[in-house]
Computed example of a mutant assay.
Amino acid sequence: MGGTGDDLSGLLVLGGDEVHARLSYEAAIPAVREAMIALSDGRVRQLLRSFIGLGEGRTFAIMPAALSERGVFGAKLISVFKHADGSKAHEGLVMLFDPESGAPICLADAGAITAIRTAAASAVATEALARPDADTLAILGTGLQAKAHALAIAKTRRLREIRIWGRAADRAETLAAEVWGETGVVARAAALPEALDGADMICTVTSAVDPVLEAGMVSPGAHVNIVGSSGPAQAEIAGDLVAAGRFIVDHREHVLAHGGEFLRAKAAGLVDDSHIAAEIGEVLAGARPGRTDEREITLYKSLGHAAQDLAVAAWLYQNVTGRTL
Rank of each mutant, 00 (worst) to 15 (best):
G2C: 11
G3R: 04
T4D: 00
L8H: 04
G10H: 10
G10A: 12
G10C: 07
L14I: 13
L14N: 03
L14F: 03
G16R: 08
D17M: 06
V19D: 08
H20C: 09
S24R: 13
A27R: 11
A28K: 00
V32T: 00
R33Q: 08
R33D: 02
M36L: 15
V44I: 11
R45G: 10
L47H: 12
R49D: 13
F51R: 13
F51I: 09
I52Q: 04
L54K: 04
L54E: 07
G57A: 11
R58C: 10
M63C: 07
P64L: 11
P64C: 11
P64F: 04
L67R: 00
K82C: 06
S87H: 13
A89D: 12
A89E: 12
G92K: 05
M95C: 15
M95Y: 12
L96R: 09
A103G: 03
P104E: 05
P104D: 04
A110Y: 04
G111N: 04
T114Q: 08
T114R: 13
A115T: 14
R117A: 00
A121Q: 11
A121P: 08
A125K: 06
A125I: 06
T126M: 12
E127P: 05
P132I: 02
A134K: 10
A134C: 11
L137I: 12
A138V: 10
G141Y: 00
G143S: 02
L144H: 00
Q145E: 11
K147G: 14
A150K: 02
A152I: 03
I153Y: 04
I153G: 01
I153F: 03
R157I: 12
L159G: 10
A169W: 03
R171L: 14
A176T: 11
V179N: 02
W180K: 14
E182L: 15
L192F: 11
P193E: 14
L196N: 07
I202W: 12
C203Q: 02
T204P: 02
V205E: 09
S207Y: 02
A208D: 05
V209D: 09
L213P: 08
V218D: 01
N225P: 10
I226G: 09
V227W: 09
P232K: 08
Q234I: 01
Q234K: 15
A235I: 05
G239M: 01
L241Q: 08
A243I: 07
R246C: 09
H251F: 10
H251D: 12
L256G: 15
L256W: 14
A257G: 05
H258V: 00
E261A: 15
R264I: 10
V283R: 09
V283M: 06
G286L: 07
G286F: 05
A287Y: 02
T298K: 08
Y300G: 01
L303K: 02
G304T: 04
H305M: 15
A306V: 04
L310F: 09
L310P: 03
A311T: 01
V312S: 07
G322L: 13
T324S: 10
